[in-house]
Design a protein around this nucleic acid. Structure first.
Lengths: 191, 191, 191, 191
DNA sequence: TATGAATGAGATTTCATTCAT
DNA sequence: GATGAATGAAATCTCATTCAT
């Protein structure tokens, strides 16, 4: 019989990759990164341990990919304003996306949060993260400066913190958290 | 030399306990709970591995104690209002303590946060945590109800989230975070 | 296109075999037998892992073939004297071939040497090797007996060892080893 | 009960170290470095796998220690001549020690030889080895220069090679190799 | 013939915990 | 109370080999 075509292999790989990432997400969410073992992920994905290493070179890398997914999702949804000047419309969009991205997939977001408490994992991202966040910081700073706030830097830091806090609460207790009502409060207070 | 009294023994034990907890805090903060080993903690504390088990029955328990410390510190500082009715003064105090407790010891607080991303550790606390937090929830709910807020529940959740967010940012970047300015904003906005 | 003839198929197979052996030789030489993986060899040969097993039944067998190549090369070059009586001319030829065979392809020779330190690999050859070497041993023994040496057996063992030593040094450091000068010394001393 | 004294621990460690090294030597000799597993070494030593890592940080390190043993043994036995000028007496001693060191412990010597065929292992030593050998090279070179040899460099290389070859043969077949007779030949021919 | 995904056994290594002293 | 050697279970990762296509 003839071997599979290049494209068939591509498809298999693509699918299996997703399958593994999904399984890993589930395991990491259930047990945390360290307690979740490769064996468990393999079982969850219905494949052998060895195969995972055909797709990802280490456990760290799997985590990395999952976390990057959060960023990518954000940047896919968020449209940067022209000239990097933040408009009200853009701010609204920022808040909405920040909320939606967590509400849509709290588990994946949990991984993102794990970064901040686990130095070993944090190290994997720190540099990239800083760089990505810089433009936002500047835009918010300008926004509150223009609005005539007394202390725009503090306001910016506070708003960032508050949004992160909301994200965290949604992540921890999506069922009971009044997402829509809080969204309204956020928009009213900060924009 | 005369044999030590019972009380002297107690003191020695208590000091050694503190010594171990301090070492553990340092190691957990530096490397994260899982990467920090008992051997490392023992070395940091200047004692043998075995002795640690004379004071704590497991690594988990050490973490537990450290995290409980955060609560205890909070409840030591916070004076509950009479009748559990939150006054403005009391609210101010709540916010101030919430901020100070992090700013005074960000590393210890990091452990507290780690809870929320590591299910295994979370399980150690969940029940107790819920119970402790309930009175606050009710007080804040009443507070905003009395103030005539349209949606006091949402407001309460938002405020909690925002405070947590601020705590997180202080924890991550105490050096640069404008703690005092943000404290003012918090008080102005929420009380 | 006309279908390939049986002979053409044979040729293709033979070429592919050589291609694999060459790749394996390169990998084994670079990384050693155990560190070199089938995947690596396949990549080096520009084929798939699976195909290797179409030509060789195991990694061990590839090594075997490579090592046998060293013997075969030797026996292809060396012409046994009539009656298995060693003449001076024949001795000279033996020494020359022994040197040339290493100098021409030190890497392949390295595999041959590896045998002697890796019992697992040694086992693959021991019996055959002994048998092949016997006639030489007898010829050298006679040679030195006839020359009137006091202890021909010891002399024979010494000469074998010295030649092996020279081979080893050429193998390890062909660039700097004064092959031709040492060849002269060998011939002068032993023949 | 009181804990063991520092010295008691020292003793335990020293003994266990030797025990492990001995077991490792046996396993490496029997099966070769790669086929010999830590599990096997532990079993041979009558201890748990884990304990080995209490004494040696990796399998590589165990090998390293064993091989260093060969050098150390040599340098312990060999007394460098004054001014690094080789005398006949010193040369005799060099040859004798070279032979004895193998004959006394062929298995350990096998490890030393393994270096030359396994790049991964070779890398662990190359630099150190080169440095250690340099003085000998110079001394031999001078020796044959002074004796008026036509090509002292080639002679030196040849002698080194021959001695190595003899060592190899002793290592492979100590039972049948006429060590004493060959020793005599070596001394007569080279000194 | 040819491909590379998939397996599974086994390797090294780590480390919380126990225990004899 | 104190020590650190010792254990043993489990984790990550590797890789020769098989097999569906």
């Amino acid at each position: 019989m003839s071997p599979r075509t290049e494209q068939q292999f591509q498809e298999i790989r693509e699918n299996k990759r997703e399958q593994i990432l999904e399984a890993a997400l589930k395991c990491f969410s259930t047990n945390g990164y360290y307690k979740a073992s490769i064996a468990e992920i393999a079982k969850e994905a219905g494949i052998s341990k060895g195969l995972i290493y055909n797709y990802f070179e280490s456990k760290d890398v799997i985590l990395k990919e999952l976390v990057w997914g959060v960023y990518e999702e954000f940047f896919k949804r968020f449209e940067f304003p022209k000239d990097l000047v933040m408009t009200e419309e853009c701010f609204v969009s920022y808040i909405n996306i920040s909320i939606d991205i967590v509400a849509d997939d709290p588990n994946r977001f949990k991984l993102y949060f794990a970064l901040f408490t686990q130095p070993h994992i944090m190290d994997l991202f720190k540099a990239d993260l800083m760089q990505k966040m810089e433009p936002f910081i500047l835009m918010f700073l300008n926004y509150y400066t223009e609005k005539g706030y007394e202390n725009p830097m503090a306001m910016m830091r506070f708003v960032s913190a508050a949004i992160d806090g909301v994200q965290m609460h949604i992540m921890l207790d999506k069922e009971n958290f009044p997402v829509e009502d809080v969204r309204k409060i956020l928009l009213k207070m900060f924009v």
